[in-house]
Structures are given as structure tokens and as C-alpha cells.
Design a protein around this nucleic acid. Structure first.
Length: 414
RNA sequence: GCCGCCAUCGUCUAGUGGUCCAGGACACCUGGUUUUCAGCCAGGGAAUCAGGGGUUCGACUCCCCUUGGCGGUACCA
């Protein structure tokens, strides 16, 4: 039975990098009908961040990366203590300044075959110094707790960031002194920022929750993340979770570090928005704005804006005029008052209030007063919406209603 | 410094010795549809496969070196 785990430490809020590692672990587990385990590694008491653990769980929940088992290391210190004492008794570890250290012998070679790129990696033990396994505050170090737990929890594959490569010899040595069988290691190349340096606050290192707050869909974020360092070996790029689970394989993970590119995320998000059922999209927008705008109105606008927004947060800038009268006009229409007044007359006589009929009348009117279509409709657009860019005008006016449109036009001439 | 990982269009990548003077996607540019913006459709530019040596009849693909990037070198993970 395949068993994998993610081992986040609650010293910060997970970003795209950590979360992609979680995704890969999840996909690997599900693909193989295995177990996906969450282990909170809160052994660094000094750097604990309040709310971090909750955020970790909230992110996994939001993305739907459901775990099968959950452990918290701070509740397991007796276990680590027991194993460290075993090492102490066997004279493999020693105490110094209140901490327990593991003796690392010289002249050994630690090597393993890494699942990423399928290569052999080896380190001479001479470059590895004795290291602490139990800190003076009684808590285990990552190296120790991690190995003990991975063994106790029957972890078969350790899929983690490649910043752990240099620590792997220590882990291997721990498995050796305990006489335990080491799991398969798969070290993922880390995601880099646009400047090819480590992901920083400026780009992508924000909490994953930030992307949700920016109006990205979880399906899009998931799809974006899997494409960072993995592809199915065919041209397909848009994949739902089931497809990802079906196609995912460790051997298809790239060896090079990918760079985080938000433009691609935006594109993918737009694709997903266009794919979303109207009623579902309505609900998502309604909830994104915390119910501030009536959902029946949102519903009417969906067909008009579905192909025009890339993120949920693009909705309001485009559609606010449906809910509120414009407070200002992006283009000055004060010299167009005459035209607008005439339009009002035409509209007042209009009793069939349908977009295509309205459109015809407007076209006729523009022709009658000999104004170029583009110019005329821009004036009308500004007067009704306040903006140069809007959803299709006729349809927007239909949704707004005749009375409201006349009111707006009157306001624009005042 | 030492140790280790990595290296194909700006970006994500395909490519496992010949079918590649390198294919797809994003981004960008042009044209079409059009009352704005999107979307959609059609087309375009964009990698001497980091550089240099090998191996081979033949290298993007294998080996070595150099360079560059990244990581580690904590009683942090």
C-alpha cells in the first residue's frame, strides 16, 4: 500500500511551492489508491506562527486535497524521546549542552536513487557533521522526528522539495542506525520567481489564500500548479482533478526548476471561468463579494461577462454600473447633451424592451442624426455606464430596464 | 570556501541517437468578426537546444570540463 505524507511546519502560511508539493503527494496517493497523510511538524516552538496550522488546513480544504490521516508532532514527543534514548543507550548518540547528538562516522557513503530524474545521488559522510536529534527544549529536530514518524507511519514515498537533498544523508543514516527500511525519495525542483530567484513575497510566495481572495478558481490553481514541473506528455493542458489523478506519474516530473508565471495562471483561470456553468458562476461571484450584490441581477449579467473576466475580481469593475449609478464619466459627455436628450425621446417611445430591438432603434437613430456608430455608441455607453469599456450595451440596457436607462441618461445631461 | 541539484523560444514545456535547420501552450504582434472590451478564427516573430571538448556513421538526446542559476553547510524546517 502506497502511503505518502506532507509535513508542513506551522511557521508560515503555505505558498504555491508548498502547495504544489502537497498536490503531487495527493495525486500520487490517489493514483495508486494509497493514503495521503497530513503531519503537522510543529517542533520549532520559537518560530510558531499563530493561525498557520489553521491556514494549512483551510488551504487543503479549499483545494479539496483531502487527507486520510492526521498527526501532530508536538503531541508525540514521548515517542521521539523513547527512540532517542535507545540511541543513547547504544552509544550511537550522546548528550552535549542539553541536546542529544547523533554521531556521524567518517568514511561512509550515503547514497540513494532519487525518483525524480531517476538518478543516483551520493554524499560522503565526511562532509556531514554530528547533528542534534533532540533539542535542549526536549523537542526533536526535523531530521529526527521526520524519520521516526515516516517509519512509524509506514511512509513508502517521501515526495518533498529539493532543498532537502542535502539533508537526506542524515535521514538515511538514521534509518541505518535503527535498522529500518528507508522509503523512496523524490525531490521536487523548487518553483522560482520571475527573476529566477527563490519565490519571494512579491510573486507567488503569498499565501495560497491570497489567490483565492484575488478571485482565482481552485480548479484553475490546481491545474496551474500541476503544470509547473509536470506534464502528461501530450499537448493537453487543461485537466480536471480526475484526469490529473489518472495521468499523474512521478517519472514525468521534470528535473529543472520552473518559474512562476502569473500570466499563464490568468489564462487558465479564464478558461475555467468560461467552462463554468452559469448558475455555478453566479454563486461563485455572489459569494466572492460576500453577498453584497443581489444574485438575481448577477445571474442576468453572467452571459454578458463570462468571456470577459479572467478572475472573479474582474467582475465588479466591469459590472458595478448594474448596481450603482456612475459617480463619474471616463469621457466628458457634456458637449453631447443634445444628442442624449434626443435619445431619451426615442427610448421613451420604446415599449418592447429587448436588446435586439433597442439595438435596431439606436442604429436607426445614429443614422438619422448622421453620427458614426462607434462615436454614437460610445457616448451612449459612457452616459449609461460611466465607462469606456463595458459589457455589450444593448443587453446591458435591457437588464438595467427602461426606467433606469432613462434616469441615467437624464443624469448625464444634467 | 566546501558539498549537492539543475540548464530547449521571454515563460511553462515536447523531445530519451537519425522522423527536429526543434513541436505545442502562455505572453507578444498582425489580420478577420465588431458600437467598446473581451472571446473566437486565421497568420507571424521568437530557442546556432548555456559554452567547449569528447563518444558515434550520426547528437537536443550519452560522457567530461567550464560557465551560470539554485539549494545545503543551524539546538529552522
Amino acid at each position: 500500500m502506497i502511503r505518502v505524507r506532507i509535513a508542513p511546519s506551522p511557521t508560515g502560511i503555505p505558498h504555491i511551492g508548498n502547495t504544489r508539493t502537497a498536490l503531487f503527494n495527493y495525486l500520487f496517493a490517489r493514483h495508486n489508491d494509497g493514503k495521503f497523510i497530513l503531519r503537522i511538524e510543529d517542533t520549532d516552538r520559537k518560530r510558531l506562527v499563530v493561525g498557520a496550522k489553521e491556514a494549512i488546513i483551510e488551504i487543503l480544504d479549499w483545494l479539496g486535497l483531502e487527507h486520510d490521516e492526521e498527526y501532530i508532532q508536538s503531541e508525540r514527543i514521548d515517542i521521539y524521546k523513547k527512540y532517542s534514548e535507545e540511541l543513547l543507550n547504544n552509544n550511537i548518540a550522546y548528550k552535549d549542552q542539553g541536546a542529544v547528538w547523533l554521531k556521524v562516522p567518517k568514511g561512509k557513503i550515503f547514497k540513494w536513487s532519487d525518483a525524480i530524474g531517476n538518478k543516483q545521488i551520493s554524499f560522503k559522510s565526511d562532509v556531514i557533521e554530528d547533528f542534534v536529534i533532540i533539542k535542549s527544549d526536549g523537542f526533536p529536530t526535523y531530521h529526527f522526528a521526520n524519520v521516526v514518524d515516516d517509519h512509524l507511519m509506514d511512509i513508502t514515498h517521501v515526495i518533498r522539495g529539493d532543498e532537502w537533498i542535502s539533508s537526506t544523508p542524515k535521514h538515511l543514516f538514521l534509518y541505518e542506525v535503527f535498522g529500518w527500511h528507508a522509503p523512496v525519495f523524490a525531490h521536487l525542483p523548487v518553483i522560482l520567481g520571475p527573476d529566477k530567484s527563490k519565490l519571494s513575497k512579491r510573486h507567488g510566495a503569498e499565501s495560497v489564500l491570497y489567490f483565492r481572495d484575488q478571485g482565482y478558481l481552485k480548479e484553475a490553481l490546481l491545474n496551474f500548479m500541476i503544470l509547473l514541473g509536470w506534464n502528461p506528455g501530450e499537448d493537453r493542458e487543461i485537466m480536471d482533478m480526475n484526469t490529473m489523478i489518472k495521468l499523474f506519474d512521478l517519472k514525468d516530473i521534470n528535473t529543472g526548476s520552473p518559474i512562476f508565471d502569473i500570466k499563464k495562471l490568468d489564462w487558465i483561470n479564464g478558461v475555467y471561468i468560461r467552462q463554468t456553468q452559469n448558475s455555478n458562476l453566479k454563486t461563485q461571484i455572489y459569494e466572492f463579494y460576500n453577498g453584497k450584490y443581489p444574485d438575481d441581477m448577477i445571474e442576468k449579467t453572467i452571459p454578458l461577462i463570462k468571456e470577459r473576466i479572467k478572475k472573479l475580481s474582474d467582475y465588479l469593475p466591469l459590472c458595478e454600473f448594474f448596481f450603482n449609478d456612475p459617480e463619474s464619466y471616463e469621457v466628458d459627455v457634456s458637449d453631447k447633451k443634445e444628442v442624449i436628450r434626443k435619445v431619451i425621446k426615442v427610448i421613451e417611445k420604446q415599449d418592447v424592451w429587448k436588446a435586439d430591438i433597442i439595438g435596431e432603434k439606436m442604429l436607426d437613430f445614429a443614422r438619422e442624426i448622421k453620427i458614426k456608430n462607434s462615436e454614437f455608441f460610445m457616448t451612449l455607453r459612457i452616459a449609461v455606464t460611466g465607462k469606456k469599456i463595458s459589457p455589450p450595451l444593448n443587453e446591458s440596457m435591457e437588464i438595467l430596464g427602461k426606467e433606469k436607462v432613462i434616469e441615467r441618461l437624464n443624469k448625464a445631461t444634467s
